[in-house]
Write a protein that binds this DNA or RNA. Sequence first.
DNA 1: GCCGTTTTCGGCCCGACTGTTTTCAGTCG
Length: 588
Amino acid sequence: MRLFGKEPVRMENSEIARVFFEIADLLELKGGDLFRVRSYRNAGMVADGLPESLKTLYEDGGEDGLKGIPGIGESTRTKIIEMLETGGCAFHRELLTEMPSGMLEILKVSGVGPKKAALIHKELGVKTIDELEKAAAEGRIQELAGFGQVSEEKILRGIKDLKSRTQVFKLSFVTPFALSFVAWLKKVPGIIDIVPAGSYRRWKETVGDLDILTTCSDARAVMDHFVKHPEVREVVSMGETKSTVVLKAGLQVDIRVLEKKAFGAALQYFTGSKAHNVAIRDRAKRMGLKISEYGVFRENGQWVAGEKEEAVYAAVGLPWIPPELREMRGEIEAAEKGALPEPLKRSDIRGDLHVHTKESDGTYTLEQMAEAAMKLGYEYMAVTDHSKAVGIARGLDEARIMAQMQAVDEFNDKLRKQKKKFTVLKSTEVDIRADGTLDHPESVLRKLDLVVASVHSGFSMSMDEMTKRVVKAIRTGLINIIGHPTGRLIGEREPYLIDLAKVMAEAKKYNTALELNSYPDRLDLNDSHCMLAKEKGVLVAISTDSHSIHHLANIEYGIHTARRGWLEKKDVLNTRPLVELMKILKKK
DNA sequence: GCCGTTTTCGGCCCGACTGTTTTCAGTCG
Ligand SMILES: Nc1nc2c(ncn2[C@H]2C[C@H](O)[C@@H](COP(=O)(O)OP(=O)(O)OP(=O)(O)O)O2)c(=O)[nH]1
Ligand SMILES: [Mg+2]
Ligand SMILES: [Mg+2]
Ligand SMILES: [Zn+2]
């Protein structure tokens, strides 16, 4: 808890969201109205997914600035303002006096929901997960009404899982498992479709589990084979159409098996998001239809659609919505108006503007990186080795970068002689020092085709200081792209504190783009930052920050993240052909 | 608590699997 003061307390959207999620859980534990619980949960999700900072909206527009956000009504808006002004929420604190915070942890145990948790708390006085473990180990759980030996064992397993298991996984961690399961399931005779769905298909940067949709008329055969995958540690449940396993790596995998005729409806269902599904189903209902994973049906039960996903959307009067957009961030309204963004394609990307070579901390030469970029069909690639301040990466000093520029010129000459339509851009990833100055002299930076500038150290500054640091760098007028603008490493390092809205406002003035770093551990900017960039009219450069020829393919993660951020071809700097790109880079 | 080409009140997505249930509640997707 922070103290009251003149200065408004900075509570991030994610922190406000967390309070709403906890209120929802606490109300549910208390046995409160489930629709009210849903409203708080929904408000949390809305706050979390909002591109603009609630604090900024409130500062700029007062209470009115917070109006018109779907899912945020009178009550939650008042609580948001309270949190922005005081750093906390009285209602939340009050609920916590009635229900210990340890109960929130207990809800995370697989198989324990609000009803069971509340009963355990009431009957046994259990307040923490350790007390729950003790009670279960002592056999006190199975004595309770509605519990038995099996459920008690399940709780013990659930606690062990929870303590050992990662909560979310990076998308790139899950990819090999997805490929492995697809290959594994192909061996089932008669299996037709095998498609990873869920948050994986929506390209969320982190996913909670892997969801796989299959169609086959022999469901039993699919299930039997599924649970025999060599990576399976535990079979959580196994039914006719749906099973769940946990892998040795801690990853949960859910599978659904349906008839081919339901493939489209099932894919729509299993892709989610949950909130998107609920909204689509609600819409169908209001149109006198019913949507489930089995299809679209009239009230009399007559089948309307289901074989194709597109037909499911068509049945409710909508065009097909790309999975990356199915997050309840306005996609249904946009679809209705025919205003969905045109999905960014791999072929829209003309080149990579952040690539390292052996000169700094890359593992391949300039020539090798260029060769690999050409193979991807690119027109250009910027060599962006580090500057001297990044010592561990053997950053280049003035003499070395001058030499590199010459090497690039010579290489480009060679390419031209070979009639290759490819250009290497002389560039750098210059360090933005703690004081906001750049780690190469202006004379050097002016000789380059393109300047990427990023923060590599001195992360622990106040938001104000960090914002000023980056803004000062932008104001040199020498920077074309701000690299990995928040510095986060998913699951390892929090983003440094920075006011991106302010940075973007300045970037717009100085014709500076912000990078979407496609390295799957970074994805920085993230999806909602992209939405903000688009809103502010700032171009995004989708780059890979490749340190090896193999990293260039990471562009795929960047493209899909950009799609999640509603970006189109025109919003992305490196969709421009070389000539156009050069014009933009010069406009300073 | 939120929201409105049926509504400012009265709805709020729909279905699978499990365990302990004697007919279904709880949890999860
Ligand atoms: N209609 C409906 N569909 C749901 C519900 N819960 C989940 N689904 C669908 C949509 C989800 O994307 C899909 C897979 O469920 P998951 O729990 O794995 O969620 P998802 O993959 O979206 O996110 P995750 O990263 O796994 O947490 O199942 C629900 O309550 N209603
Ligand atoms: Mg999932
Ligand atoms: Mg799942
Ligand atoms: Zn880099």
